[in-house]
């Protein structure tokens, strides 16, 4: 296990009944990075995170977080990690200052100033009652509660869900502040590709319970290429293009997205014999969507046993 990884999973697997939800996950989060975990709903992101946080027992495999086995986290380990689940849960009968007091009484290290500074950034007053806050403000309080305990690592499951743009910006700023150019680590799972592109330096993509991408964000961009092929039928089906992620249809052509293109890819494209085959630039979003859309069509989507080899 690499000492420099704050989270390291080793063939982490989880079944729900007969269904495999997370499969042989080898995932690592290096210290000081901001990692974005992407995937469709149901791809196993939340399950994987819960296993990493020790809230769910894996069926097989193990995971280490901050050097300790996820299943053996003691309170003194937990206070080094900030964790928030999607939904920004807070006790509805509390006021914002009660949330602060609750955090202060249950964490050994607690920074009041940090809490109120974060609150301020989201534009929240301490005396407000939680159930009168807007979604974005609740996210702010939830985030404040999570980072004020001075953790080394922040794990957020879908923190930007349902947030207005102003709150999203406040969230991004807070996360970047927290990361402090590599002093602390952040792992977020999200669907907001804008924010991911901005603040993450590494991304991971989960498809049907497996990790297909786990690398630096710029590396990812540089290793995905796309071509526009004029063809009446899906070139992905009749041609064998190595590294083909996904092909989707435009008005008169098909765009194929390929990972790690090499000479074999180019020759395969030639062999298609299509009328035209032009390389196209793609955005980060299109590259990610190629992976995610793949699972929608794939036959092996959420299947249990592997196909017979």
């Amino acid at each position: 296990m690499n000492r420099d990884n704050v989270i390291q999973s080793d063939r982490l697997t989880r079944y729900f009944g007969k269904r495999v939800v997370v499969q042989d996950l080898n995932f690592s989060v290096p210290r000081g990075s901001i990692v974005g975990l992407l995937g469709l709903n149901g791809a196993g992101k939340s399950t994987a995170i819960r296993m990493m946080m020790g809230f769910l027992t894996p069926t097989r495999g193990r995971c280490e977080i901050l050097g300790r086995n996820s299943q053996d986290l003691r309170p003194e380990d937990r206070v080094r990690i900030g964790y928030a689940v999607e939904g920004h849960f807070l006790y509805p009968w509390m006021k914002v200052q009660d949330c602060e007091a609750f955090g202060r009484d249950t964490f050994p290290r607690w920074s009041r100033e940090q809490f109120y500074a974060t609150i301020d950034r989201f534009g929240i007053a301490p005396s407000q009652k939680v159930n009168w806050l807007s979604r974005g403000q609740r996210a702010g309080v939830s985030l404040a509660s999570t980072i004020s305990s001075d953790p080394e690592l922040l794990v957020l499951d879908d923190p930007a869900l349902g947030l207005d743009p102003v709150s999203r910006r406040a969230l991004n700023e807070t996360l970047l502040d927290f990361n402090d150019s590599g002093a602390r680590t952040v792992l977020i799972s999200s669907h907001m590709l804008d924010d991911i592109e901005r603040i993450c330096d590494r991304i991971a993509i989960m498809v049907a319970g497996r990790i297909l991408v786990d690398c630096k964000l710029d590396d990812f961009r540089s290793r995905i290429a796309a071509w526009s092929i004029e063809s009446s039928s899906d070139p992905g089906t009749y041609g064998r293009i190595p590294g083909l992620i996904h092909s989707h249809r435009r008005s008169h052509s098909w765009v194929v997205t390929v990972a790690n293109p090499n000479d074999a890819t180019l020759s395969a494209l030639e062999q298609l014999g299509a009328v035209s085959c032009e390389p196209v630039d793609i955005t980060f979003e299109e590259a990610v969507i190629a992976y995610l859309a793949r699972s929608r069509r794939s036959d092996t989507f959420l299947s249990g046993a592997r196909a017979a080899s």
Binding site: R169, L176, N179, G182, C200, D201
Partner: peptide
Amino acid sequence: SVRQLAKDLVINPNTVAK
């Protein structure tokens, strides 16, 4: 500085550094 620009643009400092 890298930090300052990253903060103002709200992006990862590694990007600015690169």
